[in-house]
């Protein structure tokens, strides 16, 4: 016991060097363990086959004015609506101050005639009604989410109800007049 205390107190220089060795070993081991953990965490992220379905091309030619179609992109519905003149005017005329999530119609469309939005309610992920002709389109002529009562306008912007944001606009590109690539 006495010898042990002697070693502890008596050899200050060796102690510092040994402390450093202990610390360095501990840190090195901890870093290794943390890195080893990463594959276990990252395996839960989307796999390569899932990522491969990240873009979709859509032929727009069969869609009449006032009609909407739903296409599936990344497992989610995307609403493509060929808007009527009235719907475009209505969407452009709204005062930004009236919007919970202010965005102009021009910011949300590349061509005013075509509105392309992800058809997933920004509240809790339900699919709003308004695509089929008989559907309830809500108080603002766009879409209505039946889950918790959110109303979207003809630009897909939230106007009333619990949803915090506008329907998101996916990244898309017109490859030609009739062909759009989403994603």
């Amino acid at each position: 016991m006495a010898d042990y205390e002697d070693t502890q107190a008596g050899h200050g220089h060796g102690e510092t060097r040994r402390d450093f060795l202990y610390l360095a070993t501990g840190a090195f081991g901890a870093a290794g363990s943390a890195i080893a953990l990463w594959p276990l965490i990252h395996q839960m992220s989307p796999a390569r086959d899932t990522l491969a379905l990240a873009t979709t091309e859509v032929d727009l030619s069969p869609i009449e004015q006032g009609q909407s179609i739903t296409v599936v992109w990344r497992g989610k519905p995307v609403f493509i609506r060929r808007r009527t003149e009235d719907e475009i005017k209505e969407a452009q005329a709204v005062e930004l101050d009236d919007l919970p999530d202010p965005q102009t119609d021009a910011q949300r469309t590349k061509k005013p005639e075509w509105l392309i939005v992800v058809g997933v309610c920004t509240h809790l992920g339900c699919i709003p009604k308004g695509q089929a002709t008989g559907d309830r389109k809500g108080d603002y002529g766009g879409w209505f989410c039946p889950c918790h009562g959110s109303h979207y306008d003809t630009s897909g912007r939230i106007r009333k109800g619990p949803a915090p944001e506008n329907l998101p606009v996916p990244t898309y590109e017109f490859l030609s007049d009739d062909l759009v690539r989403i994603g």
Binding site: M44, S45, P46, T50
Partner: peptide, 17 residues
């Protein structure tokens, strides 16, 4: 959310985990 789902929506990877 994407990490929890293992994709861009609730799907087979989600069911499996």
């Amino acid at each position: 959310v994407t990490w929890l789902w293992g994709g861009f929506t609730v799907d087979n990877p989600t069911l499996n985990r």
